[in-house]
Amino acid sequence: MAASIPRRRADGEGVLSGDLTLPPSGDQGTIVGAPLPEAPPPLARSIEPVRIPDPRGPRRAAFALTPLADVMFQLLIFFMLSSSLAPYALIPLGAPSAPQSTNAPAEASQGGGSASRVIWHVSAGEVRSGEATLPLASLRDVVDALKAEGLEEILLFTTPMATTQDVATVLEVVQVANVARVRLIGRPKG
């Protein structure tokens, strides 16, 4: 008795039946009918997956923000540690000329009572002008009064007691008062 069994097609797309005839029992050593093809490939390999196009289009790859955030934090830490938020101000000192500075006292003393020029000696916390001694705290009012009288130039001598803060205080007052010119004169060396 010959039995018919289903058999897969070689391409795996479907199932064929009736083309294989098995011999009756007892004659199992002989196969009658068409020979079986080579071992068919597995089903999963041979069938292409069905792809339906996405109506939203291909999805773009997301931009990785973690490295960017790391770099930003490193920059932030660098600038926080290396920068200073101190409010600085600048006092322009110009480019002094040593020969003119040394000649200035004689010229000023000869000029004497010129109303547009005053001679100050700055010391620790005070300014001496002739016989008068003015504390630096009241210097602003004096400069304003002199400016009203036509002050144009200040010859500022430093004494051994004067510090940078004293000089800066005088120069600040003079700069705010917008006096035309200030000559800063140091003591002769030796």
Partner: peptide, 10 residues
């Protein structure tokens, strides 16, 4: 030949 400025703290 450079302009000289004194830095102060406001």
């Amino acid at each position: 030949g450079r302009a000289v400025s004194l830095v102060t703290l406001k």
